[in-house]
Write a protein that binds this DNA or RNA. Structure first.
Lengths: 146, 146
DNA sequence: TTATGTGCAAAACATTTGCAGGAGT
DNA sequence: ACTCCTGCAAATGTTTTGCACATAA
């Protein structure tokens, strides 16, 4: 058993009342491999190279379940598709307004934001999310070349 | 001409190369009336009470155009639908994780965020967005009543 | 032998687009 | 005339769901 399989099994065990299926292992392993923040169809493509018969619905179902159980992070910010991240620790993202690519941001998470926010609303504040947007290096280059 | 019509005409004049049509006036007037942040179909419903023959495509097209021209704000955060806001000054939002409702947040906009961010990425940073999430007063009550 | 999970296809939902006719300039 | 705009319907893209079969507890 290689390192990533081991890691994912351990992580998957945090799911209660759910089975550790090959599909779920592979989804988590593939998601853990990449630094990008793939959308569901991209996860589907990666997983399909190893499990050719897996269905897109299974990928959606399992990404949802893992996100609900805190195994992975669902990045539900701007853009048409939701994206997924194997790193669950809160962090910020930046999204390219040209190509939709999402990268992690190395900016400290402002937890105080939430206490500040709680004072100015009747909502029960659960968390917050910061999304920067801009033009990624690749798209800057592409624009320049035009 | 009432006050809201006058206001919307003035605002619409900021659009270059575009006509001020009844559809556009009414869309902007209706959007300006509410504190909520309606999704396109909700704008459609509001506008339809005054222009029964308007098409949903027209609403989408015009909301898009107005957002591109800075007349209104497209709130492209979490949730399945994009929402629209007649207040274009940058501000933060909070979204209910139960019902999807979006409210304005009275938290100062951290413009320094963007300069801080610029230092830690190769992106050309254009802006940022903060979304708080939590449970709105109505849904808290609903949960309690169950 | 009961719960849960899967593949497949269809449905649901939000949004965009093509087109023929309308209206403004 | 020409350009822009509209209503309508069809198409698109993403995500969810129903169902019959498979698999693990």
């Amino acid at each position: 058993m290689d390192k990533s399989t081991q890691a994912s099994l351990l992580t998957l065990e945090r799911m209660e009342n759910f089975r550790i299926t090959p599909q779920r292992q592979v989804i988590l392993e593939e998601l853990s491999k990449v630094n990008s923040h793939p959308a569901a169809n991209e996860v589907f493509d990666m997983v399909r190279t190893r499990l050719p018969r897996i269905g897109l619905g299974t990928v959606y179902r399992n990404l949802e379940i893992m996100a609900d159980n805190g195994i992975i992070l669902k990045i539900d910010v701007g853009g048409t598709q939701k994206r997924f991240d194997a790193i669950v620790e809160p962090h910020y993202h930046i999204r390219c307004t040209e190509c939709g690519r999402v990268d992690d941001m190395d900016v400290p998470v402002q937890k105080e934001f939430e206490t500040m926010a709680a004072a100015s609303t009747d909502y029960k504040v659960q968390g917050h999310r910061v999304e920067f947007f801009g033009i990624c290096p690749d798209c800057q280059k592409a624009k320049h070349d035009t």
